[in-house]
Design a protein around this nucleic acid. Structure first.
Lengths: 134, 134
DNA sequence: TAAAACCCTACCAAACAAGTAGGGTTTTAT
DNA sequence: ATAAAACCCTACTTGTTTGGTAGGGTTTTA
C-alpha cells in the first residue's frame, strides 16, 4: 500500500501539474486546496525538491514548481523517493536490492514470481508520468 | 514489500509442498529446516489453517499439511491472508476496498494507474500457485 | 495415561507512520 | 534597508504495526 505521505505527494503534484508554467505555487495554497496538513506537506515537498522533482523560489512571490515538464517525471520515481522500494522482496529490487538470507535466488520460486510482478508493475509505473494524473 | 511474516509463510508452505502426501509435518521440523522462530511460525500456520489453506492433525504423529493439491492454492490468496491488501490504494482493492476521501474515482488519474498495476499484479499472483514455489 | 502435538492469551521492544511545535534563514518587493 | 513572505530544519509526540517471547491449556493417540 502507498503510505498516506505518498498519496499526499501525488495530490500535491497534481496541483502543480494543473498550475504548470504559472509560476511558483505557495505551500499554503496547495495545503488548502488539497487539504493536506501544511507542515507535513512542507517536508514532503522538500524531499521532492532534494531529489530533483521540484524546484523552489524563496522570498515574497516564491513557492514550489515542477522542475521539468510533467511528461518527464515518472510515477515510479516519485514512489521510490517517498515510499522506498516498489518491489515486493528486497532480492528483486532494482534500486534497493538486498540479497536474501535462506534463498539462493537462482532456484527460488518466490523470487521468480516476485520478479515477474516487479516487471509487470514497473512496466506501468515507469511509463506513466505526472501528466497522467490530471 | 512483503512482511517477514509473509516470507516465513511462503518458506513454510514450500516445505509442505515438498512433503506433500507424506503425512503431517511437525511445526518443529518446519521451524528447524527453514529457520523460522517456532512460536512465531505456530501463529502463522494457525492463521493459514483458519483460512482453509492448511489442515492439521493433533496428538502423537500429528502436524500440518496442505488442505488441497499445491496447484490449487494461489499465491495471491496466501498474501491476502497474511499481509492483507495487494493493491497499492484502498480505492482499487478488490478484497479490502475503501473509497477514498478527496478523490472521486471516476476522474482520478492515480486511481486509474493503480488499477492498472493491480490488474497486472493479480494477473500473475492469481495464476501462480504453491506448486510454482518449488 | 502420558507424551506429543496443536491451540490460545498475554505481553514486549523496536520501528515506522503521521503528524505537531517552534524556530531559523533567505529572499525580494517596497 | 528592512520587514514580511516564504522556504528550511530539528526535535518531539502519539499511535500502530512488526516481529517476536513467555507460558500455559487442550486434545489426541500410541
Amino acid at each position: 500500500m502507498l503510505s498516506k505521505k505518498a498519496q499526499y505527494a501525488f495530490r500535491a503534484l497534481t496541483h502543480l501539474v494543473e498550475n504548470y508554467n504559472k509560476g511558483p505555487v505557495l505551500i499554503s495554497e496547495i495545503s488548502k486546496k488539497k487539504k493536506i496538513p501544511q507542515k507535513f506537506l512542507e517536508s514532503i515537498l522538500l524531499g521532492l525538491k532534494q531529489h530533483d522533482i521540484l524546484e523552489s523560489k524563496k522570498g515574497r512571490g516564491g513557492g514550489y514548481y515542477l522542475k521539468e515538464h510533467p511528461s518527464q517525471t515518472y510515477i515510479a520515481t516519485v514512489m521510490r523517493i517517498v515510499d522506498g522500494p516498489i518491489s515486493l522482496l528486497p532480492c528483486v529490487s532494482l534500486y534497493f536490492y538486498k540479497r536474501c538470507k535462506n534463498c539462493n535466488e537462482k532456484r527460488c520460486g518466490l523470487h521468480d514470481i516476485m520478479e515477474n510482478v516487479r516487471d509487470a508493475t514497473l512496466n506501468i509505473l515507469e511509463r506513466r508520468t505526472l501528466q497522467d494524473l490530471v
